[in-house]
Structures are given as structure tokens and as C-alpha cells.
Design a protein around this nucleic acid. Structure first.
Length: 273
DNA sequence: CATCAACCTGATCA
DNA sequence: ATGATCAGGTTGA
């Protein structure tokens, strides 16, 4: 499978992957997975569930067709696609994705990772060095210290979400059968989930390629590269008109390139020549 | 419909 | 070292 692990796992799409000695370690379900980049994909240790991994990486996505489509829609996207082959959208577990992106509000990638790891450490199952992402029941019945997670004002929202899912008031897997609009509408009913988070979840858990999440970074890029500004609705309409049939993939390339440019700028600042 | 302050913490800046 | 400022989405006025 054509995949480049660094951009796919390392720039804020999923939050449990850590690069150690050149390999990516993460937790899927109750397994600690290690992935090593190879020339034509990756080699995986820590699981026998090869199909699960392939599904996680959306192996069925026809990258050539998707890249061709969004590249034809815009020359800047074409440039980014050429520069970053193998960037993929992931298919994350619905409950984990909802809970994670609820925590992601108003926090940068680094801090999101800290909060998520803390929640896993406090409420998840010890897998030996890493912890599983807690179930709603783990969160409600667990003996973990929620204060130690340092979630700030997300704490109550997180507990409220866990309770609603536990009660069956919200059923993450039930959203799998919904179209984008219904999926989005359902997600927006959760306290703490607004436009951006709903679109992240629609894209990263439910595979709605028309979702185009707009955070501060994407808003900046749209302004600088496309000279478009305005409301969330206006910007997403622009994106869905502009970026072919896979706006979600286009968003990921825009996000990734800006993320990398920022990292390089910071590294340059720390080590001036 | 648009604007805006408040929310919480970690990182960065004076 | 210490305090001020900033980044980052959602909510509700």
C-alpha cells in the first residue's frame, strides 16, 4: 500500500502515534502497534490483525484517482501532492475520534497529545508502557484522576460526552450509516462540538470526503493562498466548489504543508546560522 | 447573521 | 526568574 507514515501519522490527524528510533508506535484498540516505513508501505509488529490496519489506513482509497482529482482542481494543491506522496486520511475509531476531537478544541497539536495520553493513562488499560483509549464506562466508573488530565474547561464536556454515550443517548457507531449532513448535525448536538470539530470527526472517523475542517491554520492558508475570507459556511462552500471531489484530502495537504513550514521556521529560529 | 468576550493551560516572550 | 501575552474552538450574550 502506498503510504508515507511521517505526514500521515505525525501532523495532528491522529494523536497517539509517537516516533521512536525511526519507527511509529501507537495504540489501536488494545494493542501497541509499531510501524516501520518501507519503500512500498510499512512493516507492522504488535498485531495479527492485518485487515484492521489496512482499514485504519483506508487501503481501499484509490490514491492515484484522489490525487489526480484534487490536483486537477488547483495548481497549488497539485504542487503539494507532488511534494508529499503517500499522505493518507485515516479511518479512526468513532468513539475515540469524537472524544479526542472534543478535547482538541482550542488546543494545539502538542497539547492535544498531552491531554489524550493523560486520559488514557488515568482511565485506560495498561498495555505495558502505553494505555488503551478508555471506553465511556472506563471514564465513568474508573478510578482515574480527571484533574490530573489537565483538560481545563473541556473536563465537564468530556465527562458529559462519556455519560451520553454510556447512556446510549449518542451511539458513535450509529453515525457510520449516516450521510454527511446528518452525521454533522448529530455531532453538533454534543456540547463542546462545533463546526470545526464536527468536520474533523466526519472526515477522520466516518470518511466523509466533503468535510473540510477549518481551524486557525486552514483559515490563514485560505486567506494567504486563495484570498478568501469570511464565515465558516462561506469558506467550506468555497472549498467544496474549488477542490474537486475530495475536499477532505485537499485540506489534509494544505494543513500538512503549513504545519511543516511552521516547524521548519521554528527549528530555524532555534538554530540560526 | 455577525461580533465578541470568556473559558484553561502550556508555551513563549519581555 | 517572574509575570505578561499568546495560541487555539465553542458557547452564549
Amino acid at each position: 500500500m502506498n503510504v508515507s507514515l511521517d505526514p500521515t501519522l505525525g501532523c495532528g490527524q491522529a494523536h497517539r502515534w509517537i516516533k521512536k528510533n525511526g519507527a511509529w508506535e501507537g495504540v489501536l484498540g488494545k494493542e501497541i502497534i509499531t510501524l516501520r516505513q518501507t519503500c512500498d508501505g510499512f512493516e507492522c509488529t504488535g498485531t495479527s490483525d492485518e485487515d484492521g490496519i489496512l482499514e485504519y489506513f483506508r487501503a481501499d482509497d484509490d490514491l492515484d484517482a484522489i490525487y489526480g482529482d484534487i490536483s486537477a482542481s488547483d495548481p497549488y494543491i497539485a504542487e503539494l501532492v507532488d511534494g508529499c506522496p503517500g499522505l493518507r486520511i485515516l479511518k479512526q475509531d468513532p468513539w475515540e475520534c469524537i472524544a479526542t476531537y472534543l478535547l482538541a478544541t482550542n488546543a494545539n497539536v502538542k497539547r492535544i497529545g498531552m491531554m489524550v495520553e493523560a486520559v488514557c493513562r488515568e482511565f485506560g488499560e495498561d498495555l505495558g508502557g502505553r494505555f488503551s483509549f478508555p471506553t465511556p464506562k472506563d471514564v465513568i466508573d474508573g478510578t482515574g484522576d480527571i484533574c490530573a488530565c489537565r483538560l481545563g474547561y473541556r473536563e465537564n464536556r468530556f465527562l458529559e460526552l462519556a455519560q451520553r454515550v454510556y447512556d446510549g443517548d449518542i451511539v458513535p457507531n450509529a453515525l457510520c450509516g449516516m450521510n454527511y449532513d446528518d452525521c454533522r448535525r448529530t455531532l453538533l448536538s454534543v456540547n463542546g462540538i462545533g463546526n470545526k470539530v464536527a468536520d474533523c470527526i466526519a472526515l477522520f472517523a466516518y470518511g466523509h470526503m466533503e468535510a473540510f475542517p477549518i481551524d486557525a491554520r486552514i483559515e490563514r492558508v485560505l486567506k494567504e493562498k486563495y484570498h478568501v475570507t469570511g464565515s465558516y459556511a462561506h469558506l467550506t462552500e468555497f472549498a467544496r466548489t474549488k477542490f474537486g471531489r475530495y475536499p477532505g484530502y485537499a485540506q489534509e495537504f494544505l494543513y500538512h504543508s503549513d504545519f511543516i513550514l511552521e516547524s521548519q521556521a521554528q527549528a530555524g529560529g532555534l538554530h540560526p546560522i
